[in-house]
Structures are given as structure tokens and as C-alpha cells.
Simulated assay, not measured.
Amino acid sequence: MPPTSHPLLTASQLSSLLQAARKAQGLTQTALAARIGLSQPRVSHLELNAQDLSVEQLLAWCAALGLELTVGSRGGGAAAAPLKTDW
């Protein structure tokens, strides 16, 4: 099956995606919590309130579920200004 991409614009969309991905793999909140080093109540809270996820937690969550986090420019609009970095 080819990889799928899900553009996310809101924390609510992220909440739904993370919960759906966990359920699609047949994982309970308890099993996921054990994989990412959180408690089951914290996983439950974060599935409903993705805006409270730290970047570290989000990356661990994605790794545990075999998801990849990609950031890119939105298509169809005016060209975005290049990002300045100090790297």
C-alpha cells in the first residue's frame, strides 16, 4: 500500500489523525503509552488536546506508530518567502 499524506492545519486534525493511527494498528492507549514513555491518562489527554503535545512527544508518537512528520509549504497560494536559519 502506498504511503498516504494528511495535510494538517489544526490541532484538532492532529488529534484525530493520531487517534486513528493508533486504532488502525490495534493499539490501546496503554500499549502506546508504554512505547512512548507516557502514562495512559496522558495519552488520552493528548489525543483530545494535541495542542498540548511537545515536539519531542509528537516525534516519539510518530515513531511508535510508524508515521513520518513532514513540514512543507502550502500549495496553491502565493510563493512563501524563504526561511532564514542559523544552521
Results as ranks from 00 to 15, higher is better:
12 S>Y: 00
76 G>F: 00
42 R>G: 11
33 A>E: 08
25 Q>W: 00
78 A>T: 05
44 S>V: 11
44 S>Q: 10
73 S>K: 07
7 P>W: 06
42 R>Q: 13
35 R>C: 12
82 P>R: 00
12 S>R: 00
37 G>L: 02
55 V>T: 04
33 A>K: 02
66 G>C: 02
31 A>T: 08
14 L>H: 03
36 I>S: 06
67 L>R: 00
63 A>V: 08
16 S>P: 00
75 G>H: 03
19 Q>H: 05
83 L>P: 01
48 L>C: 07
60 A>C: 07
58 L>I: 10
57 Q>D: 12
41 P>N: 12
13 Q>E: 15
41 P>C: 09
6 H>W: 05
73 S>Q: 09
68 E>K: 10
3 P>S: 15
3 P>F: 07
66 G>T: 05
59 L>N: 10
87 W>I: 09
34 A>K: 11
68 E>H: 01
4 T>C: 09
79 A>Q: 09
75 G>I: 13
3 P>T: 13
79 A>L: 06
37 G>H: 11
13 Q>H: 07
2 P>T: 14
25 Q>P: 01
22 R>V: 01
37 G>N: 11
27 L>P: 11
44 S>M: 08
76 G>A: 04
56 E>F: 07
78 A>D: 15
6 H>I: 03
34 A>D: 13
43 V>W: 03
24 A>L: 12
36 I>H: 13
68 E>A: 15
